[in-house]
Amino acid sequence: MRSYIAFIKKEWIDYLRNYKILIIIIVFAILGIISPLSAKFMPEIIREFMPADISIQLTEPSNIDSWTQFFKNISQMGTIVAIIIFSGMMSHEYEKGTLVNLITKGLSRKTVVAAKYTVVVLIWTISYWICFFIASIYTRYYFPEGKTTGLFLAVFSFYFFGIMLFSIVMLGSISFKNIYGSLLFTAGFTVILFIINMFPKAIKWNPLQLANSNIKILQGILTFYDIKYSFVIMMLISLCALRLSIRIFNEKSL
């Protein structure tokens, strides 16, 4: 346990020194601000740039539009930035050989994997919920009369999807000794999820549902019982990815 905590501190300090934590938090904070702002002012922007001879009916924005922008920005920008930053969590160790001395002195390889993943999840948690709370404050300000049923289920669904995704990033980072291999591995995994989603009977089991059904949850179309199997598969994939990461790392030469 002491070595686990000590390695977590070491990882945390490294992320602080290279400003990666600051970068992720700033990116997510900005996304939290612009999500409700874009929902509020997008109709006005569209009207401003539309040709005078074209008429278009635009509905008044609502809090649902704000949260739609939130999930869109998080999935298309926030998560991608985090994946790019975390994809090098092991490649730098391989290149510099910084783990050789630690492991030869008795540090367990299992501890290395567990500590690195813990720090990644911690940074993801802080950044994600900062983004959510900022978006929530601005959404309540601009759309005070709006009500959202199932908001926390929708938000937690994507949060846990991110946790699973970073277990895949961990597996890719350990399996390949460069950032590009890790990124391609994660991208390949995501593509597989989209392919599975093409089969209607497989949708309820696909963890991708936790990331792309958020608006349906907000609208009351889906409930926890509709996505419960996705949660189960998400947890199984996360555990299997971490277990496989430890196994591969134990056999990997440093």
Rank of each mutant, 00 (worst) to 15 (best):
M1N: 13
Y4A: 04
F7M: 06
K10V: 13
W12H: 11
I13E: 14
N18W: 04
Y19I: 10
Y19N: 12
L22Q: 12
I23E: 01
V27E: 14
F28S: 13
I33R: 02
I34N: 06
S35E: 15
P36V: 08
L37F: 13
L37Y: 11
K40R: 15
F41K: 09
M42Q: 05
M42V: 01
E44M: 07
I45L: 11
I45S: 02
F49K: 04
A52P: 04
I54R: 15
I54P: 12
S55R: 12
S55M: 03
Q57S: 12
S62F: 14
S66F: 11
W67D: 07
W67K: 05
T68P: 01
Q69C: 07
F70K: 09
K72V: 04
N73A: 05
I74K: 00
T79V: 15
V81A: 06
F86V: 07
G88C: 10
M90F: 15
E93M: 09
K96V: 08
T98Q: 12
L99G: 02
N101K: 10
T104S: 03
S108P: 13
V113M: 07
K116W: 10
L122Y: 02
W124Q: 06
I126T: 11
Y128T: 03
Y128P: 09
I130H: 10
I134D: 02
S136T: 03
S136E: 05
I137H: 09
F143R: 07
P144L: 01
G146W: 11
K147M: 13
T149Q: 09
G150K: 01
G150F: 15
L151Q: 08
F156P: 07
F156L: 13
F161G: 08
L165E: 09
S167C: 03
G172W: 08
G172A: 10
I174N: 06
F176L: 09
K177P: 04
K177Y: 04
K177I: 04
I179L: 08
G181V: 05
S182Y: 03
G188E: 15
T190R: 07
V191C: 12
I192K: 13
F194K: 11
N197Q: 15
P200C: 04
K204C: 03
N206S: 12
N206G: 11
P207M: 08
L210S: 10
L210R: 04
S213M: 11
K216M: 06
I217W: 12
G220N: 06
L222I: 07
F224P: 05
D226A: 10
I227Y: 02
V232W: 12
I233E: 10
L242N: 14
E251Q: 06
E251G: 00
S253L: 02
